[in-house]
């Protein structure tokens, strides 16, 4: 395997997605879950940019990446706002001790 752009990109994307999902599955702290979601989003953004680069439409890839960054930031902000409210009204950020609703 030669060290080409798309190889490096592909490995980075897979690592980012792997780390993100692993973090989402094992972390019990809400803030860490939001961080894991952001890592996942970065993997997806890199995938978009790489896909556009491979097709030779770099500009489109970058504009899509910007749009995704905006959308994901809003999600992160709302998640953080909810985490603040949860800390205030439940006294904890631990998702395990949060699950009171019946399955």
């Amino acid at each position: 395997m030669t060290l080409e752009l798309w190889n490096v990109g592909l490995v980075t994307i897979l690592v980012l997605l792997g780390v993100g999902f692993y973090g989402l599955l094992i972390s019990r702290n809400l803030i860490k879950m939001v961080v894991a979601l952001q890592i996942l989003a970065k993997g997806a953004i890199l995938a978009m940019v790489l896909a556009a680069k491979l097709q030779g439409w770099t500009v489109i890839g970058q504009s899509m990446a910007l749009t995704v960054i905006v959308a994901d930031t809003i999600v992160a902000v709302i998640a953080m706002a909810m985490a603040v409210q949860i800390r205030r009204h439940c006294g904890t950020l631990d998702v395990q001790s949060l699950s009171n609703l019946r399955r």
């Binding site: 989003a41 997806a44 985490a83 409210q85 949860i86």
Partner: peptide
């Protein structure tokens, strides 16, 4: 709040899969 954060995390993870 618990329902909201559960919805948010699952939904956000789903939409990232769509993006990939």
């Amino acid at each position: 709040l618990e329902a909201g954060i559960k919805y948010l995390v699952q939904s956000a993870a789903g939409s990232i899969l769509v993006l990939v």
